[in-house]
């Protein structure tokens, strides 16, 4: 039988979506509560790790050639560097310029560009952790001596 017992499978089906949503909450509220891009990204990757542990790796239809996670990772890193360089486009000479309006302290929409940095760093970290997990655990049989 693939995977673990019926109890673990059913509970995982109920909980995995909740874990993913909690990771998004940690990322989006990174400038109000502890957490931020890194911790939320790893929790988002944790929901997929939970599904792979409970069901086995066949149910997600992963192909062995390319899983596509590295693409998201590189794209997110490029977006972070572009956001950092966007101060140069406005004519100033400052890297990492925070040119958005600040908003009021303590509200959800505030702190200028910091939530955008948080979101893209979160996407990058989630895809890179998932790539390391897949490479070390699943595609290990590909190595032939």
């Amino acid at each position: 039988m693939k995977g673990m017992t019926v109890i673990v499978k059913k509970t995982t089906q109920l909980i995995a979506g909740m874990v993913f949503l909690y990771g998004m909450y940690v990322i989006v509220h990174g400038h109000l509560t502890p957490g931020g891009g890194f911790a939320g990204g790893v929790i988002m990757a944790g929901s997929f790790i939970l599904l792979i542990l409970a069901f086995g790796s066949d149910f997600m239809h992963l192909t062995k050639e390319e899983s596509g996670t590295t693409m998201y990772e590189n794209l997110a890193t490029l977006v972070v560097i572009f956001l950092a360089a966007s101060g140069l486009l406005l004519g100033t000479r400052i890297f990492f310029l925070n040119w958005f309006p600040k908003g009021t302290l303590g509200q959800l929409v505030s702190a200028g560009m910091l939530p955008l940095y948080n979101v893209f760093v979160g996407i990058e970290v989630a895809s890179s952790i998932l790539t390391i997990f897949l490479a070390l655990v699943i595609f290990k049989e590909e190595i032939s001596e």
Partner: peptide
């Protein structure tokens, strides 16, 4: 409820 479901299912997997 997250603590409840998590710990019971973890105990079941561990004893099996």
């Amino acid at each position: 409820p997250i603590l409840f479901f998590g710990s019971t299912v973890a105990a079941h997997a561990l004893i099996r």
